[in-house]
Design a protein around this nucleic acid. Structure first.
Lengths: 338, 338
DNA sequence: CTGTTAGCGCTTTCAT
DNA sequence: ATGAAAGCGCTAACAG
């Protein structure tokens, strides 16, 4: 039969409430009592019943990971980190896709939270950039952590200096002698697209290269949009010798087009991406890109969220490190186009 | 304030229990009453409290998706299907990675089920092939659905005729004139590796090609293992003109090696994979592979599971269709190796 | 076919 | 610092 709190209380010679206090880390318990109860609970292999706990406590011990159509690899990494943190803190996790383009999406999230009594949310891009959503959550006092949000002072979650990473990438290309460096922007709804574009601009400026609008085309983070952009760029009268795509999928699209046109990479064209997804190692040549520690980011965001759930005054915005992955798709700009 | 069952009962002029009956689709309610209660519940926007329901009902209205280190894309597709089915049936889903290589993994699953009172499990490969787990779940009468299990009569879930798909792939290669067709096997723990290999054998037999053991090498479904296998095969005195890898990641590894060696695909070497993951469209040339409807499979498996939870006598093993995706990595065996 | 009475296992008051 | 009693919102068992 299932071990109940009552059994633990009896075995430890205290009341149910005291056991409950120990379980919930409430401070007002004598240390000796706490230790004894913990020992008994462990020896009986007691685990509180989640339903009973949440019914009585008016909370679910559940957080939800919300996402809208992200890359599978990225999301899986984030998810793995979230799961790790949840396990450690004895919290449960549910995953929920939400279509942020739908008019009623804020309401959808609201009722999701209400119906399941969710204790907190982990938001991933581009949900992190919906002011309407964030405002409403603040209003409702629903704790949430953002992964890579566009600026928002005082929020909790994790960020990465994507702008600086992009700048560094451009500096790398410039140092190889490239002066015609193109950029394929990411989906307009993502804050990341802004940052990466700004980093591109900063990199050019720092290298003393003028910004040429014809070298910047809009993509939407998909492989196909990368291909389209590549065609547009390579059809230019004075085409670029290097292309910085705002993510790996688009960079893969560029490389595919380049191969199709018989261009050598990196001899004729250098290509680089962002995210360090598995495809960056699986294409030929391997792709120079920016690594972000998505799994750690998921874990850290969740840890901060859980802290904020316990104490709304806590919860930080943590800064995570990025790392350039220099592989074989980038090189000196030396070959002459025929 | 939250609407409770009591409020619905009062508004409909019936007892709480009658409302409960309507909600749970119990048959013993007069049609007129049922309709009235449903109307009132909807107008009040009533949604039962999951915690209270599960505490009183001794069940969680939760299913868990269990996995062990699968490809991110595959899992995300399955997960999406599971979420769809859960939404439709008003069930919740939790995801749980479990390391099936650990000695205590069956116990881990057991306590997971017990502690969260999970109503059912969705198993993905290779968990579907752990006899120990399946036996224990049967013993405990815990409903579960398998996605692509190795044979098990009477089980519930979804399957795909992977053997036949592999055979068809080999037939395709043979019809293009290939006679030296190699196979890179998948991870030994996966039933899929067996099937695909058997399909390979059948395909050769049907084409009247002798099975050459030196053309079959062991991989483990990873990109790197595909590269290693490719090196081994291409170093042979009489190398293959076509390689059938047991999944796309390994096929991508093969293509990378081929490019590195200056081989033309498909001129010098035809390559094909299995699974139709995004990478198959993102590499150059695009990869010929086998598509499996992973999302539908996840949904269907969940639907069957949910049926089985309601009525243990129901729940089927559904057969799903596959489809060959013929792209640009395969072609006639015509070029002469230099 | 419908209602009444007890809980499910825990946390909250409010005492002490 | 600890305990007793009263629910949380729902379903189970038994009546009628």
């Amino acid at each position: 039969m299932r071990v109940r709190i009552e059994d633990v209380a009896a075995a430890a010679g205290v009341s149910m409430k005291t056991v409950s206090r120990v379980l919930n880390n409430e401070p007002t318990v004598k240390e000796a009592t706490r230790l004894r109860v913990q020992a008994v609970a462990k020896s009986l292999n007691y685990r509180p019943d989640p339903s009973a706990r949440s019914l009585a406590g008016r909370r679910s011990y559940l957080v939800a990971l919300l996402y809208d159509n992200p890359s599978a690899n990225y999301l899986m990494e984030i998810l793995t980190g979230v799961v790790e943190a949840c396990e450690q803190y004895h919290y449960g996790m549910v995953v929920q896709p939400v279509a942020y383009t739908r008019a009623d999406f804020v309401q959808t999230v609201e009722s999701l939270v209400a119906l399941s009594r969710l204790d907190g949310l982990i938001l991933t891009p581009p949900l992190t950039d919906s002011i309407a959503l964030l405002d409403r959550l603040d209003e409702l006092r629903i704790p949430y952590a953002c992964v890579s949000p566009k600026v928002r002072e005082g929020g909790i979650g994790v960020t990465l200096d994507e702008q600086e990473a992009a700048r560094e990438m451009i500096s790398l290309l410039a140092s190889m002698g490239h002066t015609r460096i193109a950029h394929i922007r990411g989906h307009a709804a993502h804050g990341a697209s802004e940052w990466r574009h700004e980093g591109y601009c900063n990199g050019l400026r720092q290298a003393g290269i003028d910004y040429d609008p014809s070298l910047v085309v809009q993509g939407e983070f998909s492989f196909d949009s990368g291909m389209q952009a590549a065609h547009a760029l390579l059809d230019l009268d004075d085409p670029p010798t290097a292309i910085f795509a705002a993510n790996d999928d688009m960079a893969a699209g560029v490389m595919s087009v380049a191969h199709g046109r018989g261009l050598d990479i990196p001899g004729d064209l250098s290509v680089c991406g962002f995210d360090d997804t598995p495809v960056s190692r699986q294409i030929f040549p391997t792709l120079t890109t920016v690594h972000q520690p998505a799994r750690d980011m998921g874990r850290q965001a969740t840890v901060e969220l859980l802290k904020a759930i316990q104490d709304p005054a806590s919860g930080q915005m943590t800064h995570m490190p990025y790392a350039l992955q220099i592989r074989h798709s980038t090189g000196p700009a030396h070959r002459q186009r025929t």
